[in-house]
């Protein structure tokens, strides 16, 4: 277990998540992609923390990432519910008129 291997795993997680976030049509599936990306970020942050500078500050950063994840989830659920209620759909493609 070295910094490089941990970063490689983190990169793999991030890329898989990115693939999902770009390709999925359903809002909740996109959220799962984002979650997976953040999962990679957590792992990378932990690797940096352990192998480069094991100070308390690094832990705080990780805590913030985890918080960001929950915020993202909560808002994602809320928006998905709202979308679902208002237009009976949960497809990102069908929500494009939001941008018009």
């Amino acid at each position: 277990m070295t910094l490089q291997t941990m970063l490689l795993v983190a990169a793999a997680l991030f890329s898989v998540g990115l693939y999902g976030a770009i390709s999925q049509q359903v809002v909740v599936m996109v959220m799962m992609g984002l979650e997976l990306m953040l999962n990679g970020v957590i792992l990378a942050a932990a690797a940096f923390w352990w192998f480069l500078s094991p100070t308390p500050d690094g832990q705080v950063l990780l805590l913030v990432v985890i918080t960001a994840m929950t915020v993202e989830m909560a808002m994602g659920f809320a928006v998905a519910t709202l979308l679902h209620r208002s237009r009976q759909s949960d497809m990102t493609d069908m929500a494009t008129d939001l941008s018009r």
Partner: peptide, 22 residues
């Protein structure tokens, strides 16, 4: 899914860049 191939390409590209960086 929509746009499966581009998504796959982007994801693999990202992985290569990140892995190279690591």
């Amino acid at each position: 899914v929509h746009g499966k191939r581009p998504a796959l390409a982007v994801a693999i590209g990202t992985f290569v860049v990140l892995a190279a960086g690591a």
